[in-house]
Design a protein around this nucleic acid. Sequence first.
DNA 1: AGCACGCCGACT
DNA 2: GTCGGCGTGCTC
Length: 727
Amino acid sequence: MPRLILKVAIDAPLRHLFDYLPLFNAPPPAVGCRVRVPFGRRSQVGLVVAHARHAEVADAQLRHIHEPLDSDPLLPASVLELLRRAADYYHAPPGEVLVGTLPGLLRAGRPARPMQVWQWSLTEAAPSPDSLSRAPRQAALLGALTQAPCEESQLDAALPGWRVTARTLADKGWIERAQIAPDAATDWAPERGHPLTTAQRAAVDAVAAGSGFGAFLLDGVTGSGKTEVYLTAIERVLAAGRQALVLVPEISLTPQTEARFRARFGAAVAVLHSGLSDTERLAAWLAARGGQAGVLIGTRSAVFAPLARPGLIVVDEEHDGSYKQQDGFRYHARDMAVLRARIEDVPVLLGSATPSLESLAHGRSGQYRVLHLRERAGSARLPQLELLDVRHQRMAGLVSPALAGAVREELAAGRQVMLFLNRRGYAPVLLCHACGWVPKCDRCDAHYTLHRGRRLLLCHHCGRERPLPIRCEGCGAQDLLPLGAGTERIENDIAALFPDHRVLRVDRDSTRRRGALDAHLEAARDGSADILVGTQMLAKGHHFPAVTLVGILDADQGLFAADFRASERLAQTIYQVSGRCGRGEQPGRVLIQTHQPQHPVLRALLHGGYGTFAAELLAEREAAGWPPFSHLALLRAESTRQEDALWFLGETLSLAAELGHAGVDLLGPVPAPMPKRAGRYRAQLLLQAQRRAPLHALLRAWLPALALLPAARQVRWSLDVDPLDTY
DNA sequence: AGCACGCCGACT
DNA sequence: GTCGGCGTGCTC
C-alpha cells in the first residue's frame, strides 16, 4: 500500500530532516505547513518540507505527527526554495534555517493569525493617581495609564503582576480595555514625489523596464537621491498591484526612515526590525504574507519574510556589514536578496554610495547592471576631501592645530562640525606612570578601556567591567595615566577648546538608553549642538545638512588593520561620513588626519574618488587572490583549554586531506588574532578556492564528518561561508 | 539544542 | 546510604 512520509525540518542543530507519518484520519499537511511532532521525549514544532514515498529510517522508528498547525502553507514555494538553497549554500542545519527564521510566535506553535492586542486606558471616572497613596500598586498602574494608554505586553514588562490590580480598577470603573485594530486607520494623504533628475528617471525606468529577474547596482554618491529612486520604483510596483521588500541596515531603520515611507505609502507600509515585540513582528510578517502590506521595510532577517505578490526587492546601503549575520546561521542578506529575486523572478535593486567590491565586480562581469547617479540633488556639491599631515604637529590630543583652526573658522561662521573617531570610551589604555602597569582583562588578550564618565574600566571584547583603580596595583603609585583617546576624551578636549560651543557625543555609550539615539540625532539636526563627536554611528544614514566640516581624526587606524578588507572599510567610512555634510548651499570639507599622507590608499581616495579607489583595490585583490576573485570559508573553533581549539582544527585538516581537497587551499590552523576572548581560546582554519564548486564539494563531505571527531566534543566550532572578517 | 542515562564524590 | 556533577548518546 503506498504511504506518505512527511519530511520535517526541526529547529535543532541537526544536519538532516526527520521522517514522520501523517495522522490517519485527516488529509496530510501540505508542504510549507507546520506540524507538532513527537521528538525524543518532548514535542516540537517542525515544518513540512517535502512529501516522500520512502522513509530514511526503519518503520519501527517512525512516529505519527501530534497535530497539524496550519491549514494553509505558512511559506510559499519560493521562500521554501530560498531557505533550502540558503541552508545548502551556508551548510547550515536545515531546521535552523527553515524553522529558525520564522517569527518567534510561529516557532512556538502559535496560530498564523495576528495576536489580539489589548490596550488599557483611563476612563472619565478615573481619579488622580496621587489620591491613592494607600494603594501603591493601583497608583502605579493609574500613573502609567495617565501618561498614555498601554498595551498589555508593555504592562507585563513595566509592572509585573499588574493584572490583579487592573481587575480591581476596572471593577471601580476607572480603567477599561479595548482591542486595537491591527491597522489603525491613519489620516494620510500620499505625498507626491519630487521631480526626478534625468539620471534618477533613467534608473527607475531601467528597473521597471524588464520583466522578471534583473539585478541592478545603483551606484549613487551620497545626496544624489537614491531613496527617491527606490520610492518611485516602489510606486510603480504598487500601482501594478505588487509588493516591494526593502532591506536596510539595522542602524538606519529609524522612526525617520519609517516616517518617510509612511508619508509616501501610508498604511501600506509594514516594518520588521529587532525593536519590535513578538506580537508586532508577527503582525508585520503576516501582513507581508497576506499581501495587506504593500511595502515591507526590514532589517536582515526580513529577506526571508513571505510576500503574497512580490514585485521588487531593494537593498539600501548594500555594502553595509550588518547584512551579514555574525552568529548561528551566518547568511548575508544582500546575497539572499539577489537569490530571492532570482527565485521570485523579480528585479532587485542594490543601492550604495560606496558599493562593496563584490557588487562592483558583479557589475563589471555584467551580472549586475550598474546605474549611476553622479550628481547631488539640487545645488549641493560634493564635499572636498583633504589630507592633514599631522607628522611633527603639536597635537592637542588627537586634534592638530590645522584641524582646530578649521573648526574655529566654521564655528565662527555659525556652522556645524562633525568629528569622527572609531573608538569609544575615554582612553584605550590606562598606564601607571611610575612602573608601567596596565590593567588587563583576565578573560581576553586585551587592555581595559577607560570610561571616565561611567567611572569604570570596560573590556570592549567581553563586556567585563571593573571599578576604576585609584592607585597602581603593581607599585601603589597614584599616578595612573590615560593613554590615547576615544570619543569621550575628544568630547572633553573639544569642549575645553571651544567652551562657548555645545558638543554632542554620539556613540554606543551615549545612546544606550532607549530613545537616546533619536534624541541625539534630533539635537544634531535642529542645531542645538555645534560640534558632533562620534563613531561609526554618525556615519550611517543620518543627514546633517548644517554640518560643513568633517574631521576624520585618525585615518591611520584603518591603514594598519590586519584584515584584507580594512582599506575597503576605511574608504567606505570616509565616504559615508563625508556624505553626511554639505547638503545645503554650503559645500562641505572633509579633513583627514594622517601620519601617512603618501599611503596609496589615501592618495587613491583623494585623487580619484571612491570609484577609482575601488578599481585599484579590485586590481590588488585580483593579484593577491582575495575575494571577489576567490571564495572563502572560515572554520572557527574555541575552547576553554588553550590547546583544544588548535587540536580540533588540526584534526579537521587531516580529515580534509583524507577526503581530498583539490582546488581548495587550507590555510592554518592558526590562533585567532586575539587568541583569548571572554575566557575562551580561539583558533581558525581558512579555506580559499578560486572556484566555488570545489569549495562547496569539500564542505559537503567534510562538515558532517567534523561533528563525529572526538576533538569536536572539546570545542565550540562554526563554519562561516563568505566571512566578512577573516578573524 | 534538550533531555535522558550513567557512573563517581560530599552530605542528610 | 542518596543527591547531583557533567560526559555520552539520541532524537524520525
